[in-house]
Every structure is written in structure tokens, then in C-alpha cells.
Design a protein around this nucleic acid. Sequence first.
RNA 1: UGGGCCGUCGCCAAGUGGUAAGGCACGGGGUUUUGAUCCCCGCAUUCGUAGGUUCGAACCCUACCGGCCCAGCCA
Length: 556
Amino acid sequence: MTEDSTLPANNFIRNRIKSDLAQQNVSVITRFPPEPNGYLHIGHAKSICLNFGIAAEFKGHCNLRFDDTNPDKEDDEYVEAIKHDVSWLGYTWQQLEFASNYFEQLYAYAVQLIEGGHAYVCDLNPEQVRAYRGSLTEPGKNSPFRGRSVAENLDLFSRMRAGEFKEGERVLRAKIDMAAGNINMRDPALYRIKHAHHHRTADRWCIYPMYDYAHCISDALEGITHSLCTLEFEDHRPLYDWVLDTLKTPAHPQQIEFARLSLDYTITSKRKLLQLVEDQHVQAWDDPRMPTISGLRRRGYPATAIRDFCERIGITKKDAQIDVGVLENCAREALDHAAPRAMCVLNPIKVVIDNYPAGETEELDVANHPKRPELGRRSLPFGREIYIERDDFMEQAEKKFFRLAPGKEVRLRFAYCITCTEVIKDSNGAIVELHCSYDPLTKGGKTGDGRKVKGIIHWVSCQHSIAVQVNLYDRLFNTPNPGAQDNFTDHLNPHSLISLTDSRAEASLSNSEAMQAYQFERCGYFCRDAEDNAAGQPVFNRTVTLRDTWAKINSK
RNA sequence: UGGGCCGUCGCCAAGUGGUAAGGCACGGGGUUUUGAUCCCCGCAUUCGUAGGUUCGAACCCUACCGGCCCAGCCA
């Protein structure tokens, strides 16, 4: 790498903007144009990072514009959620706009198109329009209403606006070419009638512009220089350009398309995400298993991790399927640096240290972060009875298992080395308690005789620890490409959420704040949920596990 | 079958006529009171395939192969 690694990676859009800038010295203006019909997801994050990132890099700006031209689907709830998500990701928009802000101008431009003989009111019903459109291989036929006079079109269009017609009765169409190979150019609809209540314009309108017509003009009105969108709009670019060219708008933004994000084991379709919420496969849009920005946030993903991810995956025109491991790794990297450490025993088993004086408590002074002393220290109480992780004990241990086993010695993190002396079982043979002895000479790290104790396990004091609930999240789907399945809900992972209600955390966690990230040593990164459970116990959500080389070895 | 687009390591991705960056994953080693982190080392004689142009091709030309998108009065 010859470039400074802090610079964003090269991609074809940056390169193109650079060369555009070399031609003419203008500032770069982009926009992020969500439709407020759902919550933002990780795929939108890619677009947000691109649009805001490009604008910042070239000292321009980015607008947030809601593409609210379809009142049937849009809602203010989504507007507010989207604004929050964009801000949380760390971006600041220049103008906050709505396509609906331009309805009056859009109407005036439509009148202009009609006057120029470039648009006409068509009385065909939707089925007829489809029949006249032809097919992928056959050209379409001209609508019988294509030859209406300008005066008649003007009259009809104003009566459409006035509400004289029912939905579906008439539509305003561009007059382009019914034989075009590109179906978008076969006299596309520009305005349709919808007697619907709009979240911003209320009942002032009963005709609404179509995306292809509204989007390009909105871009032009805002002086957008580069209109970045996803690949499926590539076929729409000729129409985007046609509208702006025939209208002779003061500006003509360039539309550039890039591949949308698809992530392994996840769904990035607003329609399907909405279905997961409505059918209650998840609790809400911000369920920590959702790939929504709000879900990732509640899961504990830092905004920096999401931005880093978007940077790493790049921008291309190639349909790519990204390994979820890349996203997880971004979280690990951000959290390793940011998260103070703590100890929490997920599945506790009680250990009695027989030779430790009963009733005695020692306070161990430990660092909150192994590499960042500025994160401070805390005191950990240690006593005769502790909990350790069930998985850290094995009755029949193989040679490579260097945790606790009968007769084996391990170190308790920050504390003493203990040796297992006895295993206590219930009548069913289940292990209920372990007895150990400790070596008083091993406090703080050394062994008196220089012997090596390789295993280190985490623990909490029985007496001082607090009961917490821990939510262990795993991928929501158990197939790499759920979106491609016939019925994606058939592929939901039944174990995507495991709630542990008997976990024990060190006492310092009782006054942790919501959303505060921690690394539970040897377990993973967690954050306290915004809402604790009904019993008043703190709830911690697992963001991501630690890399687990042992699990890898063990599974071989 | 008409139109548009895409094919560089297992997954991403730079490179755009001068002899294959980087990240993730993977394998090996070191440090470590987290089997974490961190640090080394390894990992495409080859760029979908086949021809051609050129002193020289992943980059140019031709043909083929494979994949994605489009027939909403959705965005």
C-alpha cells in the first residue's frame, strides 16, 4: 500500500469524482434518499457511508432527503427513526428535505412537459397499460390516447389534480418510445391518482409523482452533483436523463450506480424485515438480531464498527455476498479497544475452596483494561465460595483441555491457583458442586516453585456477585442466503436467542449504564440492554463472541 | 429471446499496457494471568474461457461461457 492507510480505499466512484473535479472546480453534493417506509438496515449504512463520506472527503455536503412519493406506505415513525440512525452513525446532513416539499414544482414541471408535447394523460387501466407495454422481447404499442392535444392533456391533468377521477382511471405518461428495448422508456407513468392521506401534505394532493419523475428533479433542485444509487436503477438512468434533458433543468446531476450490500445469513429487504416484525419472529425493528441500524445498536455494535465495515467492503458494481465474519470482526476490533473488562459467569457451577478461611474476603485490585491503564482499576472481592463456568470443568479431560478437571490445577484470573479435589453430584449424576484447594503462594501471578499453570479461568464470588440475565444472540438464519429461499421464514435459526437467567456477574456491573459495552473476559463483548427484565435484573446482550481458538481446535 | 450490467485467491477488493496491493478467512511460530489482544511468517507464475494485437496484456480487440437486473399506476 503506497497510500496513507487512513485514506479511504479507492473505488470507481471516488475515481470518477476525482476526474470530474479535475475538469471543473465545483463542490460535490450528494444525498441519501431513503423512503420512510421502514427502518434503515446495514445495507443502507453502506449507502450512507458512501454518500456522506464522499461529500466530506471532497469538502462538499450531503442532504438527507426522504423519498416520500407513495403515501400508502410512508409514515412519520420511520422518518424519525431514520434521522436518528443517520445521526447515530455520526453523520450530519446539510439540508433535510422531502420529495413532497417539491410537489408544487414537480407539478409545474409536468405541465411544462405536457406543453412541450412530451407527456400525455392516458385513460388505459393498469391491465391495459401492461398489455400495451409489450414484453421483454416484443415492442409495445402506442396508447390510443397518445395523440391527445396539448390543451386536452392540460385540462385532463388539472382535473386529475382536482380530484375528478378515481384511482387507476387516468395517469400522466411521458411520451418517449413504446418500442424501446429498455422497458422503462416505453411511455412510463409520471403521475398516478391516489386518494390517500400523505404523512406531510395530508390531503392536499390526490395525484402523486412516480419515483423516476420525482427523484431526478429533486436531485436537480438541490444541486446534487452525483446521485449515487444501487444497480437496479441502472436501467432507469436513461429516463433520469430524459426527464432532465427535456425539461432543461438548471442542473443535471450524474447518476452512478453501485452494488447493494448482501450479507451472509442475513436479510436486507425492507419488506421481509417488516414481515419478521409483524409476524413476531423478532420482538421489534430494533431486536438485537435484526440487521437494522437500530438492532445493531441495541446489540452493542459501535457506530465506528459499522463505518469501518462499510469502508472495508468497498464499492463496486459486482454483486457480492459479504461474509458476516467481516462485520463481526469490525465489532471485535472496535470493542477490544473501547470496552472495559469485567467478569461474568454465564452458566455457573459453585466451587468451594476448602482450605480458604470461611467468612474471609479479599479485595483484589485489578485493571479495567489490559492495555489501557487510563480506563482505571477496580476492586474484585474474592472469597471461599465462588462460581466458575460449567464449561471450564471437565470430568474426563483430554490432554489439550487445560482448564479445571479432577486433580488438575488452574489459575483463577487475577486470583489464586486452585486444584480440584472433589466432584459432588446429585442423584441423577449431574455435577452440582466442586471442591478445590488453593495455593496461598500463588496470589497475583506467580507460583512459589516456578511451576507452570497454563489454564486461566474467570470466576465471581458467590457472596458478592449479582444475578443477571444474559442474552446470547446468534445469526437469525441458518442458511447463507435466506433471501433466495422460497420461504425465508422456514430458515430462521431457532437458537438465535438464548436467554440465560442464572448468570452471575461481578458486583461492579450492578450500576452499569445502558448501552455501556464490556468485555466479559473469555466470553465476549456485551452491553447492558436499555430495558432490564421484569424481575429487575440487569440484562446484558452479547454483541459478539471473542475469537475462540479453543472452540476451533475442539471441533476438529 | 429484447435492453442494461458484472466476472482478479475460500469471501471481499486494489490495479485500467510494463510484469498481481490490502483486509477477512486459513496454516505455522512468538508474547501474554483472557485458548482474547498484539507481533512475525506463509497463503493467485496468475486475473471466467479461447483466440488475436503488442517487445510486453488482468488491462486493448474478437468470440464464447457463467451470473445479476428490467415487463408496478413501488422505490
